[in-house]
């Protein structure tokens, strides 16, 4: 019985580890973007359910306290990183969009949004402004 339990647990742990490694490329890219765009800790309001683990990010539950919104674009006057290209196109607060297209991670920045919030685009993201 003990053996069965330990085998099942091992299987579950391995499966979860594998799933975890493969299922969140967008979150990984988002982490990189945050680290590149902002210095120090940043208060983030998540308008979408996300599994984000980033030491640089402090999740807040109100747009008032937020320095950055990640998600649908619910906050006003707060820079937005969205996952939807049409929101990126229409929302004036959006500074970046991250989404998957044909299995590839798509990352684009908005010159208007970056200028509005005086955010400097690092060299490595140059050429990603449509």
């Amino acid at each position: 019985m003990g053996k069965l339990i330990s085998v099942s647990l091992s299987f579950m742990i391995i499966t979860m580890t594998l799933l975890k490694g493969n299922s969140i490329p967008l979150e990984r890219v988002l982490g990189d973007v945050l680290a590149s765009l902002f210095n120090g800790k940043i208060k983030v309001y998540l308008s979408e359910r996300l599994q984000l683990k980033n030491n640089q990010m402090e999740v807040v539950h109100s747009c008032k306290d937020a320095q950055l919104e990640v998600g649908k674009g619910e906050c006003k006057g707060v820079p937005l990183i969205t996952f939807d290209y049409s929101t990126f196109q229409t929302n004036p607060n959006s500074i970046a969009v991250i989404y998957l297209d044909k299995g590839r991670v798509q990352l684009f920045f908005s010159r208007k949004g970056l200028n509005k919030y005086q955010i400097l685009l690092p060299e490595k993201y140059q050429g990603l402004i449509p």
Binding site: Y85, D101, R104
Partner: peptide
């Protein structure tokens, strides 16, 4: 297939 002319595409 979805008539998306003009939309950017970033290769891997």
């Amino acid at each position: 297939k979805d008539f998306r002319m003009g939309k950017p595409f970033l290769p891997e």
